[in-house]
Nucleic acid binder design. Structure first.
Length: 465
RNA sequence: GCCCUCAUCGUCUAUCGGUUAGGACAGGAGAUUCUCAAUCUUCAAAGCGGGGUUCGAUUCCCCGUGGGGGCACCA
């Protein structure tokens, strides 16, 4: 059995989105599972819509997701593999040669300046109601595709089709097939939206006298609200967005695997090594899957929680460095990495995603933080918060602020002497220190902020009202 | 309009003819806690409809219905 060779063939005409990522992922998984080669081929024949920025986005997104390619642009020193070049814009001569072969064999002909592929079979004219014109149909046997995921699919291709436009540019179907032939691709794993095109492709293979590779058409990802498949314009569709929001690529990859595939049991969160081991084409579902950002967020949370301290701090640092409007944080980051670290570690078990970090931690980095009026009203409506704050300020100099447990003991002792509960101190103190009622443990906040700032903030709240 | 394809809780899915139809996310309730999360317990929630085949169909076949995709000198 020869080596498996799969490819991912995006065109740099737009943002890199979830659907493309999953197609790339399934190809990559299959290559890694079988010990085959994962090829990246850039389909940049559409000169009008191509852009270098989108091309770089493809490289960046794949790299971020951890989908390394064995052949393709940016691999090695010369060209990136033995079957290059890997950008269609550099393969014009190859296409010309293959078209010439078809013409020589009588399987292609020129008409209206374009070159058409000739189907075999009886030909007849018919008026097409839908297109309102007379077309030449060809009566031939159906193309039979033994798809590795959908099973047997039959389809009749009944009209000759253009393979080279009148401007000289070859069309997608032609270049796609020629590239797959010349790159020795063994398995074509692509979205179901290409299933109907496959009959054209099979005819082309036959025209070239080449046995078609295996086909595996994977289900599409549907947008979570409204009808249709997910496209670049849909909410949550862009890989770039998750990158910017500080999602963990491992979490996104794990989530994407579960859209249309499962290990056969109840396992969901699993290391990539396990996924590679268990992934196979027969395990891929046939039905389309709807994107669910809640489930993705949950997966991200699960990965976030088990991240080691250093990893989380590094992630937080990267995230804040990308944020444009976080001057106080940036300053703190530069001035006191230790303090930044303590603040972030306080937040790790509490937040659902890195993107919550700014709102969750601003008051650690500035004295100029807002006080939530509603929370304030609520806190002041119960018990005697001012008395508790005065007690706290008075006792503060005697507190051991080196550990959370010591602080907890101290507050409990203080509460006991005033015959009130821990909560009577917790709520007003939290309001004073953070201006709100959500956040890390009050003991952790006191420890990290330090005696001086804790005293000042409580005093400030007391003075204000 | 034509062609292809799919069909289990709201969502992602398990079940390869016989199950109290299981799990996860989301939702409800409770526990715990120093707020909020997390965590744990728990509740509610599904086989699109109609015909077959079979002792027995969610599972196999057919027809509907519904969803998705494709029908270019886009990729």
């Amino acid at each position: 059995m020869s080596q498996v060779r799969v490819r991912f063939a995006p065109s740099p005409t737009g943002f890199f989105h979830i659907g493309s990522a999953r197609t790339a992922l399934f190809n990559w998984l299959y290559a890694r599972h079988t010990g085959g080669a994962f090829i990246l081929r850039i389909e940049d024949t559409d000169k009008e819509r191509n852009s270098e920025a989108f091309l770089n986005l493809i490289y960046d997104s794949l790299s971020w997701l951890g989908l390394n390619w064995d052949e393709g642009p940016k691999v090695g020193k010369n060209g990136g593999g033995d079957f290059g070049p890997y950008r269609q814009s550099e393969r014009g001569a190859i296409y010309q040669e293959y078209v010439a072969r078809l013409v020589a064999a009588g399987r292609a002909y020129e008409k209206d300046g374009a070159i058409w592929f000739r189907l075999l079979g009886e030909r007849f004219e018919v008026f097409d109601e839908h297109r309102k014109k007379t077309v030449t149909k060809v009566k031939g046997p159906p193309v039979v595709i033994e798809d590795r995921i959908r099973g047997r699919v039959e389809r009749v291709e009944d009209e000759d089709f253009v393979i080279v436009r009148s401007d000289g540019n070859p069309v997608f179907h032609l270049v796609n097939v020629v590239d797959d032939i010349t790159m020795n691709v063994t398995h074509i794993i692509r979205g179901e939206d290409h299933l109907s095109n496959t009959s054209k492709h099979v005819h082309l293979y036959e025209g070239f006298g080449v046995k078609p590779p295996e086909f595996a058409h994977i289900p599409l990802i549907l947008k979570q609200n409204g009808p249709g498949k997910m496209s670049k314009r849909d909410q949550g569709a862009l890989i770039e967005e998750y990158q910017r929001r500080g999602y963990l690529p491992e979490a996104l990859v794990n989530f994407l695997c579960l859209l249309g595939w499962n290990p056969g049991d109840d396992r969901e969160k699993m290391p990539i090594a396990d996924i590679i081991r268990l992934f196979d084409l027969p395990g891929v579902n046939q039905s389309n899957a709807r994107f669910d950002d809640k489930k993705l967020a949950h997966m991200n949370l699960a990965y976030l929680l088990e991240l080691p301290a250093d990893g989380f701090v590094a992630l937080a640092r990267e995230f804040f460095q990308r944020q444009p409007a976080s001057a106080p944080v940036a300053a703190a980051l530069a001035a006191d990495a230790g303090y930044f670290r303590e603040v972030m570690l306080l937040s790790q078990p509490k937040i659902k995603g890195t993107e919550e970090l700014p709102a969750y931690t601003t008051y650690f980095f500035t004295e100029d933080f807002p006080v939530d009026a509603k929370v304030r009203e609520k806190v002041f409506a119960k018990g005697d918060p001012k008395a508790r704050l005065r007690d706290l300020v008075a006792a503060l100099p005697t507190f051991d602020l080196t550990s959370d447990t010591a602080i907890e003991e101290a507050i409990k002792a203080l509460a006991a002497t005033h015959t009130v509960g821990f909560g009577d101190f917790q709520a007003p103190a939290r309001l004073a220190l953070s201006g709100t009622n959500v956040g890390p443990s009050i003991t952790g906040m006191m420890r990290v902020l330090g005696r001086e700032r804790v005293g000042q903030r409580i005093a400030r709240l007391l003075a204000a009202g």
